[in-house]
């Protein structure tokens, strides 16, 4: 009787795990898992967005004043970079479906480059805040000109949220770079796990688009506060 189970696996897909019947079931399960993970991530960011919304509502004027400290040009540049990286990621997935190894690798590399650009810009942004002593905590001692008339305590709250949320987002970018790097390694080594099946690339893509999604909301919330 047991032999029947062996037979169904005789010519199985190289990436197929033992608990699945076929690669289609495995891919669907992975997609469901990935989506529930992303919903979980949305709730994670939802929590900090709630904190942001409440304090933004309460301290609108001070938030408006202190947000001038953020450089919206850098923010807009980073938004462009991330949007473009989302596009290159989706192109990588596209070529992964077509099993075009070189183009997939190129697009993944492009995505990684965008991610690094994003982090470098972020580094300069953070650096400016540290220089102006705007990092929250005991060392929060900005000069008056950097407060723009905001209540210093609220300014610190704003900076806490800014560093907390964008820091969390940057952490996701760094994890994304690591994952994309591993994926590129797989593609480079022609690992059948990725070359025979588009799904690993698609899942990394989903993660990357999620990171992009978060930034789409962060950009107007932090850099474009209306009066």
């Amino acid at each position: 009787m047991a032999s029947t189970a062996v037979d169904t696996h005789a010519h199985h897909h190289p990436g197929l795990h033992h608990q699945f019947e076929d690669i289609e079931q495995q891919n669907e399960a992975y997609l469901v898992g990935m989506w529930s993970f992303m919903v979980n991530e949305i709730m994670f960011f939802g929590g900090v967005f709630l904190v942001y919304c409440l304090y933004r509502w309460r301290y609108q004027d001070d938030f408006y004043a202190i947000h001038h400290e953020l450089n919206w040009k850098m923010g807009a540049f980073n938004t462009t970079v991330l949007l473009f990286s989302s596009f290159s990621m989706v192109m990588a997935v596209h070529f992964a479906t077509l099993k075009d190894r070189m183009k997939t690798l190129m697009n993944l590399a492009l995505t990684c480059a965008c991610a690094f650009t994003f982090l470098i810009v972020k580094y300069f942004e953070y650096g400016a805040k540290f220089e102006h002593k705007l990092f929250p905590g005991p060392n929060f001692r900005p000069e008056l000109e950097h407060l723009n008339g905001a209540n210093p305590n609220v300014a610190q709250l704003f900076m806490s949220l800014y560093f907390g949320i964008t820091g969390l987002h940057a952490l996701h970018i760094i994890i994304g770079i690591l994952i994309i790097g591993i994926l590129m390694g797989f593609w480079y080594k022609k690992n059948p796990l990725v070359t025979e099946d588009f799904l690993p690339t698609e899942m990394v893509g989903l993660y990357w688009h999620f990171v992009d999604l978060v930034w789409i909301f962060l950009f107007p919330l932090f850099y474009l506060i209306p009066r």
Partner: peptide, 28 residues
């Protein structure tokens, strides 16, 4: 965000289960 979800994340062509999860993301 909707554009990214629909086209980049392929939800538009996804199964109804994926669509349901995408909607559940609004629980917050």
């Amino acid at each position: 965000a909707t554009l990214v979800v629909l086209y980049f994340m392929h939800v538009r062509y996804g199964t109804s289960l994926v669509k349901l999860w995408a909607i559940l993301g609004f629980l917050w």
